[in-house]
Amino acid sequence: MNAHVTPNSPGPVSLTIVPPFARFSLRIAAASVEAASKAFGLELPVKIGQGQAKDGRAAWCLGPDEWLLHAVETETVQIMEAFARFRPETPHSLTLISDREITIAMEGARAAELLSVACPIDLARIHPGMAKRTVFDSAQVVLLRDGPDHFRLEVWRSFFPHVHELLQIANRELASGY
Protein backbone atom coordinates (compact mmCIF):
# COMPACT_ATOMS: atom_id res chain seq x y z
CA MET A 1 0.00 0.00 0.00
CA ASN A 2 2.97 2.29 0.27
CA ALA A 3 4.21 2.39 -3.28
CA HIS A 4 6.44 5.35 -3.93
CA VAL A 5 5.44 7.81 -6.60
CA THR A 6 7.57 10.92 -6.57
CA PRO A 7 11.06 10.96 -8.02
CA ASN A 8 13.91 10.69 -5.59
CA SER A 9 15.50 13.90 -4.37
CA PRO A 10 19.21 14.33 -4.89
CA GLY A 11 20.87 13.03 -1.77
CA PRO A 12 21.71 9.76 -0.14
CA VAL A 13 18.24 9.26 1.33
CA SER A 14 15.31 8.56 -0.94
CA LEU A 15 12.37 10.81 -0.03
CA THR A 16 9.01 9.87 -1.45
CA ILE A 17 5.43 10.86 -0.84
CA VAL A 18 3.21 7.94 0.00
CA PRO A 19 -0.02 7.82 -2.05
CA PRO A 20 -3.33 8.10 -0.17
CA PHE A 21 -4.46 5.30 2.12
CA ALA A 22 -7.04 5.03 4.88
CA ARG A 23 -5.88 6.59 8.15
CA PHE A 24 -7.89 6.75 11.38
CA SER A 25 -7.45 8.11 14.84
CA LEU A 26 -9.02 5.64 17.23
CA ARG A 27 -9.79 6.70 20.78
CA ILE A 28 -11.06 4.02 23.14
CA ALA A 29 -10.59 3.10 26.78
CA ALA A 30 -7.66 0.73 27.17
CA ALA A 31 -9.99 -1.73 28.89
CA SER A 32 -12.12 -1.98 25.74
CA VAL A 33 -9.28 -2.43 23.32
CA GLU A 34 -10.23 -6.04 22.59
CA ALA A 35 -13.47 -4.97 20.93
CA ALA A 36 -11.51 -2.61 18.71
CA SER A 37 -9.01 -5.31 17.81
CA LYS A 38 -11.91 -7.50 16.74
CA ALA A 39 -13.48 -4.80 14.63
CA PHE A 40 -10.18 -3.92 12.97
CA GLY A 41 -9.08 -7.51 12.53
CA LEU A 42 -5.72 -6.88 14.14
CA GLU A 43 -4.59 -7.15 17.71
CA LEU A 44 -3.92 -3.59 18.83
CA PRO A 45 -0.69 -3.12 20.78
CA VAL A 46 -1.20 -1.71 24.26
CA LYS A 47 2.19 -0.19 25.03
CA ILE A 48 2.69 3.37 23.80
CA GLY A 49 5.02 3.34 20.81
CA GLN A 50 4.42 -0.28 19.83
CA GLY A 51 2.96 -1.27 16.48
CA GLN A 52 1.28 -4.25 14.88
CA ALA A 53 0.72 -5.01 11.19
CA LYS A 54 -1.00 -7.75 9.20
CA ASP A 55 -2.67 -8.13 5.81
CA GLY A 56 -2.42 -4.51 4.79
CA ARG A 57 -3.65 -3.19 8.12
CA ALA A 58 -1.45 -1.62 10.74
CA ALA A 59 -1.96 -0.09 14.15
CA TRP A 60 0.30 1.82 16.51
CA CYS A 61 -0.42 2.86 20.08
CA LEU A 62 0.26 6.61 20.40
CA GLY A 63 -1.29 7.30 23.80
CA PRO A 64 -2.96 5.48 26.67
CA ASP A 65 -6.30 5.57 24.82
CA GLU A 66 -5.15 6.43 21.33
CA TRP A 67 -4.25 4.38 18.28
CA LEU A 68 -3.23 5.27 14.76
CA LEU A 69 -4.76 2.89 12.20
CA HIS A 70 -3.67 2.41 8.61
CA ALA A 71 -5.51 0.40 5.95
CA VAL A 72 -6.06 0.21 2.23
CA GLU A 73 -8.21 3.13 1.12
CA THR A 74 -10.92 1.01 -0.47
CA GLU A 75 -11.64 -0.52 2.95
CA THR A 76 -12.45 2.85 4.54
CA VAL A 77 -16.21 2.48 4.67
CA GLN A 78 -16.06 -1.16 5.68
CA ILE A 79 -13.82 -0.31 8.65
CA MET A 80 -16.03 2.60 9.72
CA GLU A 81 -19.08 0.36 9.65
CA ALA A 82 -17.34 -2.36 11.64
CA PHE A 83 -16.57 0.16 14.37
CA ALA A 84 -19.99 1.79 14.20
CA ARG A 85 -21.57 -1.59 14.91
CA PHE A 86 -20.08 -1.88 18.38
CA ARG A 87 -20.18 1.79 19.30
CA PRO A 88 -23.51 1.57 21.19
CA GLU A 89 -22.23 -0.97 23.72
CA THR A 90 -18.56 0.10 23.71
CA PRO A 91 -18.26 3.87 23.28
CA HIS A 92 -15.26 5.08 21.36
CA SER A 93 -14.30 7.58 18.71
CA LEU A 94 -13.08 6.61 15.27
CA THR A 95 -12.16 9.64 13.19
CA LEU A 96 -11.14 9.47 9.58
CA ILE A 97 -7.94 11.44 9.11
CA SER A 98 -6.73 10.10 5.76
CA ASP A 99 -6.30 13.63 4.43
CA ARG A 100 -5.09 15.31 7.61
CA GLU A 101 -1.51 14.18 7.12
CA ILE A 102 0.82 13.63 4.22
CA THR A 103 3.24 10.77 4.65
CA ILE A 104 6.87 11.01 3.57
CA ALA A 105 8.80 7.77 3.27
CA MET A 106 12.56 7.85 3.81
CA GLU A 107 14.90 5.11 2.89
CA GLY A 108 18.66 4.88 2.98
CA ALA A 109 21.53 4.06 5.28
CA ARG A 110 21.61 7.70 6.39
CA ALA A 111 17.86 8.10 6.96
CA ALA A 112 18.23 8.36 10.74
CA GLU A 113 20.99 10.92 10.31
CA LEU A 114 18.73 12.92 8.01
CA LEU A 115 15.97 12.94 10.62
CA SER A 116 18.42 14.05 13.29
CA VAL A 117 18.75 17.47 11.68
CA ALA A 118 15.49 18.52 13.33
CA CYS A 119 14.08 15.62 15.33
CA PRO A 120 15.16 15.95 18.96
CA ILE A 121 14.56 12.37 20.11
CA ASP A 122 17.07 9.54 20.37
CA LEU A 123 16.25 7.70 17.15
CA ALA A 124 18.27 4.68 18.20
CA ARG A 125 15.54 3.95 20.73
CA ILE A 126 12.79 3.85 18.10
CA HIS A 127 13.00 0.27 16.91
CA PRO A 128 11.59 -1.07 13.65
CA GLY A 129 7.84 -1.46 13.99
CA MET A 130 7.50 1.37 16.47
CA ALA A 131 5.80 4.74 16.12
CA LYS A 132 6.24 7.95 18.03
CA ARG A 133 4.51 11.29 17.97
CA THR A 134 7.21 13.92 18.29
CA VAL A 135 8.36 17.12 16.60
CA PHE A 136 10.42 17.87 13.53
CA ASP A 137 11.63 21.46 13.48
CA SER A 138 8.62 22.71 15.47
CA ALA A 139 6.07 20.79 13.37
CA GLN A 140 4.29 17.98 15.16
CA VAL A 141 4.80 14.67 13.35
CA VAL A 142 4.24 10.97 13.80
CA LEU A 143 7.40 9.04 13.11
CA LEU A 144 7.07 5.41 12.05
CA ARG A 145 10.11 3.18 11.79
CA ASP A 146 9.75 0.34 9.32
CA GLY A 147 13.33 -0.88 9.37
CA PRO A 148 16.83 0.15 10.37
CA ASP A 149 17.06 2.41 7.31
CA HIS A 150 13.40 2.99 6.58
CA PHE A 151 11.16 5.58 8.21
CA ARG A 152 7.86 7.25 7.49
CA LEU A 153 7.03 10.73 8.68
CA GLU A 154 3.36 11.67 8.92
CA VAL A 155 3.03 15.44 8.74
CA TRP A 156 -0.06 17.61 8.98
CA ARG A 157 -0.86 18.72 5.46
CA SER A 158 -0.18 22.42 6.01
CA PHE A 159 3.20 21.66 7.62
CA PHE A 160 4.21 19.45 4.73
CA PRO A 161 5.85 22.09 2.48
CA HIS A 162 8.07 23.26 5.31
CA VAL A 163 9.05 19.79 6.48
CA HIS A 164 9.58 18.39 3.01
CA GLU A 165 11.71 21.33 1.90
CA LEU A 166 13.85 21.08 5.00
CA LEU A 167 14.38 17.36 4.43
CA GLN A 168 15.52 18.12 0.90
CA ILE A 169 17.94 20.81 2.07
CA ALA A 170 19.35 18.42 4.64
CA ASN A 171 19.54 15.59 2.12
CA ARG A 172 21.63 17.77 -0.18
CA GLU A 173 23.74 18.66 2.84
CA LEU A 174 24.38 14.95 3.50
CA ALA A 175 25.34 14.54 -0.14
CA SER A 176 27.88 17.37 0.17
CA GLY A 177 29.92 15.27 2.56
CA TYR A 178 30.22 18.03 5.16
Binding site: S25, R27, D65, P91, H92, S93, T95, L96, I97, S98, D99, R100, E101, W156, R157, S158
Partner: peptide, 12 residues
Protein backbone atom coordinates in the same frame (compact mmCIF):
# COMPACT_ATOMS: atom_id res chain seq x y z
CA UNK B 1 -16.88 11.91 30.83
CA UNK B 2 -16.86 9.52 27.89
CA UNK B 3 -15.79 12.00 25.24
CA UNK B 4 -12.87 12.08 22.82
CA UNK B 5 -11.44 15.04 20.94
CA UNK B 6 -9.73 14.81 17.59
CA UNK B 7 -8.33 17.69 15.57
CA UNK B 8 -9.69 17.60 12.03
CA UNK B 9 -8.57 21.08 10.99
CA UNK B 10 -6.42 19.63 8.26
CA UNK B 11 -8.69 16.75 7.27
CA UNK B 12 -11.06 19.21 5.66
Amino acid sequence: LKVWLTSTTEEW
